[in-house]
Design a protein around this nucleic acid. Structure first.
Lengths: 252, 252
DNA sequence: GAGTCGGGTTGACACAGATCAAAGGGGTGC
DNA sequence: GCACCCCTTTGATCTGTGTCAACCCGACTC
């Protein structure tokens, strides 16, 4: 698994590994962004070690009391919410360097489920201590606010997708978003493995799994991508982008 | 307009009025929640006065540089995002006591438009100063984090709505949400004026205005609500809730 | 007070995506 | 390494919502 980078790690508990932010290859995308070495050390000292999860394991569940947020160190997660009557909605997919759990701050309890979609590892960041430290390190405080703000903006993007786009546009937007995030992490922009099922993609995009499957097939027929199960190649990124923003604008 | 409470106010600029948080009837729903009198005073001192907006006026636009967040003191707003190709999506409606503008923190620029849907008034809260002060007042810092977290959770609720609900469920959820928020502000849970058009409701709910109109008519025919243009009475809140969570659960 | 205009309602029809169904294949667990 | 099961694909049909169109109403304007 690509993101599973070997580091000089100091074992702490049998549950996880301690890895310094300064040693982490995600530091530029994560909370420590642009912190001084000294401040990064202070952040390190509050991070309660790592936690490893097997595929399918829950990092937290809706209703769990909120104590920490989590930084994905390696692996891949989904978050979802579900209603009493059994509907569920995937609210996001998180990869290395992204923060999980901020939904819990407002109510002291998590409001969604977070599940590892492959064997993964997170850093546990006790939130009360993070608040305390961020009140002493302005740039850390600001980074936290930025991370939360970006989550809000990301959610607005999903609302736009769900509210205004048709099936193929949604899937194109999804693939381009993944591509861009993989690129930011040093992976190929064009070739990657999907960690989630068609049903999970569908839930995220507000579509049924059959519709997702059909859209994949259509894109493949048209030479935009190649699909082999979960393996995706983007063959013509320009035309894939054009699916999103049809030349000449939208009719209607 | 109900929320336009008369207070002993000190005029500051010709643009707005200075009103102390401690005098504001929204303080229990807003940033000052559970702050000591002393801390509330410190918060007051950074709030850069009020700003009044006429119906239709923009509070900020996507791309505007980000400097402040805003607390709605009175009135009603919508926020929306739009793409190059002309699609737009209403991302929320904000009423008194709610915070606007947090989308701008992450990128130093606003990412959506905020428009007054009726004559309104906001408090201007310079964000850099708020960060500085919140680093000195732990409960203020925590309140800010809670407000942002709740915005994330609210967005997840909208994603659920857009991703999994049918038209009438969406409208029922929308009406119940408004009802609950009006109640929290001391207004009738059952009777209120919509400040937005059918088209804006539709944009928010991912529906066309005709569909919204038809759903209103259907609810009225079934005796759940009465509709007269923008004036709504909820006649049978239990059955309206049942639209959302059909007894016996959802089929499929 | 007449005219205009934006917002709302309603009807007829079209179509994208859901639903139902069946079959094949690949990954996972034992 | 084998077997099973879940995931995926594809086809046929159905339906909720979009689209197009006509009309109504109330609020402003002049």
């Amino acid at each position: 698994m690509h993101a599973n980078v070997k580091l000089n790690v100091i074992p702490i508990t049998n549950q996880g590994l301690k890895v310094a932010c300064s040693e982490c290859n995600m530091r530029e995308l994560c909370l420590p962004f642009e912190l001084t070495d000294n401040d990064m050390g202070r952040l390190d000292s509050l991070i309660g070690g790592g936690r490893k999860l097997k595929r399918g394991q829950h990092l937290y569940r809706a209703g769990d009391s909120f104590e920490s947020i989590f930084a994905v160190k390696a692996g891949f997660f989904k978050t979802d919410v579900l209603t009493e009557d059994g509907r569920d909605q995937v609210t996001g997919f998180q990869m290395a360097g992204e923060i999980l759990g901020m939904d819990g701050i407002g109510t002291e309890a998590h409001t969604c489920n977070a599940v590892a979609l492959e064997d993964s590892e997170v850093c546990l960041i006790p939130f009360a201590e993070l608040e305390l430290l961020s009140s002493k390190i302005p740039s850390l405080q600001h980074n936290l606010h930025k991370v939360m703000s970006r989550e809000i903006v990301r959610d607005h993007g999903v609302m736009m997708l769900l509210g205004t786009m048709r099936a193929e546009e949604r899937l194109a937007a999804f693939l381009l978003n993944l591509s861009q995030r993989f690129t930011a992490r040093g992976y190929s922009p064009a070739e990657f493995h999907l960690r989630m099922t068609r049903e999970e993609i569908g839930s995220y995009l507000g579509l049924k799994l059959e519709t997702v499957s059909r859209a994949f097939s259509r894109f493949q027929d048209e030479g935009l991508i190649s699909v082999q199960q979960k393996h995706i190649c983007i063959l013509d990124i320009a035309r894939l982008k054009a699916v999103l923003a049809p030349p000449g604008g939208r009719i209607g």
